[in-house]
């Protein structure tokens, strides 16, 4: 709790330093040093996310400047979320049922895109996949280490269903960890999602403190 007032800058700097150390140990390339320094220098300039935070959640401080991960299809979250107002859980259906939120099956995409916007290059790429009978191989962006047991289902249950939070605003809950996805095309990591981040949130919101709840 004594860390709760820490500024995001400090925290992000700490994260960056750890990343930096880690990278230096791993490969020792000065390139990473420069990158980390650049990230640190840029941090104060980063605009804070404007997404409203639901009142029943005390969000943990912590920011992260994620890399832009190239995906097989540059999927525009902004278009779907902001413009079309599609609920997160419409596509990521498993979030309320399973550990993982899940990537929608290609058939779901095609459900709309058989008719909508078929002239766009991205959609044509998608159609190509569909016709080949394959699914795109997406790169994981929000990834936790394999020794961490994270389950979407419990978090959604606690912060949405048990809290009687309107499901149509679920992106506010998701945003606590995923950032403002409605402003992104493909997802970018905006929160550190490291142990400090998780712990701060658990302490602020009464999550379990037992190591084995999250470590496997």
């Amino acid at each position: 709790m004594q860390f709760a007032n820490r500024t995001s800058l400090n925290n992000a700097a700490a994260v960056s330093i750890r990343r930096l150390q880690a990278k230096l140990v791993q490969c020792g390339k000065p390139f990473y040093l420069l990158m980390a320094l650049a990230v640190m220098a840029l941090l104060p300039l980063t605009a804070m996310a404007e997404l409203p935070v639901p009142s029943h959640i005390t969000p943990p401080p912590g920011e992260h400047e994620g890399e832009h991960v190239p995906q097989p299809i540059e999927f525009p979250h902004d278009r779907h979320v902001k413009d079309m107002k599609i609920n997160c859980m419409y596509c990521h259906t498993y979030a309320r049922r399973s550990k993982v939120a899940g990537i929608p099956p290609t058939s779901k995409c095609m459900g709309c895109h058989k008719v909508i916007a078929t002239d766009r290059p991205r959609i044509q790429k998608l159609t190509e996949y569909w016709e080949k009978g394959e699914s795109p191989r997406w790169k994981k962006v929000h990834d936790v280490p394999d020794y961490v047991h994270f389950t979407h289902e419990k978090h959604i249950r606690k912060f949405v269903f048990d809290a009687d939070f309107p499901v149509e605003d679920v992106q506010q809950v998701c945003g606590v960890c995923h950032g403002e996805v409605r402003e992104m095309t493909v997802a970018e990591k905006k929160k550190p999602l490291n142990m400090g981040f998780c712990r701060r949130c658990h302490e602020a919101n009464g999550g379990p403190g037992d190591c084995w709840k999250c470590h496997k």
Partner: peptide, 15 residues
């Protein structure tokens, strides 16, 4: 390694 509220001796591998 610590005791969980479930009465188990937990071993947190990455610690």
């Amino acid at each position: 390694t610590y005791h969980t509220p479930d009465g188990l001796n937990a071993q947190v591998y990455n610690r």
